[in-house]
């Protein structure tokens, strides 16, 4: 087996060895859905039922948590503890490291998405996505834009703590202002504009739409914005990839 496959499998295995991380990644979103479900269960949000609006949204939020915490913060800690530096003096190429973590993140995210969908269907009678192909494609586009974005933003931190702080800031900001938790319609105009400046807004719009109302080709703006973020953040994250926190 080659280095790339070994690294990917090993990183995935190690994720599951950290019980705390497993709990927060897989159960926290379920708890949130259950919590919001007991608040908004019978309300309609923009013409959608609670589950139709919130389950796709929280799948979107999970892309953000995976990107910032499972990928970004972990790589920042690898940078600080010298794990990456040790790789640096082997023939292993940096893109393989980033790729391995991206695949690992995708696997973990996919599991969490399936858990959420099953939970939604059991508790809130949520159906399968109406445009399954579109939803899957939307997820891929969202991952491609968020993973490198998180890798770049967390690499700006001087150490693991600052990277974790950057992650928390991004996550909280987007979680509360992108319509994932509180419906945007409830918010003042000003905050609705702020929402549109946050990348997660487009992920949530795209996922809600493809799950319930429209195929992906009718959501051109969302796709273009996300692909734009993807291109910029891939360039930035590979251009500014650092092996260690020293120079």
């Amino acid at each position: 087996m080659n280095a790339l496959a070994k690294l990917t499998i090993l990183e995935t295995k190690m994720f599951f060895r950290d019980k705390m991380q497993v709990f927060w990644t897989f159960l926290f979103p379920v708890l949130m859905i259950w919590l919001f479900g007991s608040m908004f269960k019978d309300g309609k949000i923009g013409g959608l039922t609670f589950a139709e609006a919130y389950v796709p949204s929280w799948i979107g939020v999970n892309i953000v948590t995976t990107a910032f915490f499972t990928l970004g913060t972990v790589l920042a800690s690898y940078r600080e503890t010298g794990v990456l530096r040790r790789y640096q003096s082997t023939p292993l190429k940096p893109w393989k490291i980033l790729f391995a973590h991206t695949v690992q993140g995708t696997v973990i995210f996919a599991i969490s998405a399936v858990i959420l969908a099953i939970f939604g269907s059991l508790l809130f009678h949520l159906g399968m996505p109406k445009y399954l192909g579109s939803t899957l494609l939307a997820l891929v586009i969202s991952i491609v834009s968020f993973f490198p974005l998180a890798l770049f933003l967390t690499s700006l931190g001087k150490n693991t703590q600052t990277s974790a702080a950057i992650s928390s800031l991004c996550l909280n900001l987007m979680m509360f202002l992108s319509g994932a938790t509180f419906p945007l319609q409830m918010m003042p105009d000003f905050l609705q504009y702020v929402a549109k400046a946050l990348p997660l807004y487009y992920v949530i719009e795209l996922l809600r739409a493809t799950w319930n109302t429209a195929p992906i080709w009718e959501r051109g703006t969302d796709v273009i914005v996300l692909l734009g973020i993807a291109v910029i953040s891939i360039v930035l994250s590979s251009r500014f990839f650092r092996w260690s926190d020293k120079s």
């Binding site: 087996m1 080659n2 280095a3 070994k6 690294l7 090993l10 295995k13 190690m14 060895r17 950290d18 690898y78 503890t81 010298g82 794990v83 530096r85 040790r86 790789y87 003096s89 082997t90 023939p91 292993l92």
Partner: peptide, 23 residues
Amino acid sequence: YQATSIQKKMKVKEAVDLFSSFY
């Protein structure tokens, strides 16, 4: 290196196997 480590949750045999695959 001076004071660098590998992943805490990696087993010794996994580390050896992984690093062997780099060369």
